[in-house]
Amino acid sequence: MSDMNTQAVARYRNNFLKEVEERVEDGHWVRMCMQCGVCAGSCPLGPHWEHSPQKIFMMIRAGKREEVLTSDAMWMCTSCYNCIVRCPRKLPITHIMHGLAHYSHRLGLAPKGQPTREIAKLFWDSLVKTGRVNELKFSLAMYFKDGFGQGIKNAMAMQGVGLGLVKAGRLNPMEILGGHACKDKGGIQKMIAKAQEIENRKKGLTA
């Protein structure tokens, strides 16, 4: 377990709701939920994950810290916004789910090998390194994340799409050789570092 997690546990003890309110993006909305269940019933991914937003919000209030932060639920959210549109209390559910995902990731509690999380990590790493996302490397990394054999299969399956992108000038095969960065790579990196510093300060996180 990360230091950040140990510190959080020490700081908030049994008050997980307070932790969420202070540290999770839009977390202060959680207490507004009236447990009507319309978000749970509206989510297209509903049958495929363990916890619906409604359930997650109740678990937060019940102090089920471990279960919430290790849940795969917030990683399954596709940002369809169905729940936000229907929530009678206007909770920004999608945003809270992403906030929870982000927080659990920072604490090192997010489920290992969860595909959405892996993709998000690849995307982010590529972005931080060069200031832009290298489409080719990103796609290849995605295909091969489950091993070489599966990677070849995935790449073959997506061949048509890839060629189409190349033809349209959206994908440059030469990018495999390093790929180009944005003009001010250092500037972007500084900007991200600053943003992280502000976020940590605001949320009382030390990393």
Binding site: C36, G37, V38, A40, G41, S42, Q54, P88
Partner: peptide
């Protein structure tokens, strides 16, 4: 105990079909 998420229609018999989650 549930706020119904949506209603569809069974075209064969005209019955409304309620979708949601029992909380």
């Amino acid at each position: 105990k549930s706020k119904v998420a949506r209603i569809a229609e069974n075209k064969e018999n005209g019955n409304p079909v309620l979708h949601g989650v029992n909380t």
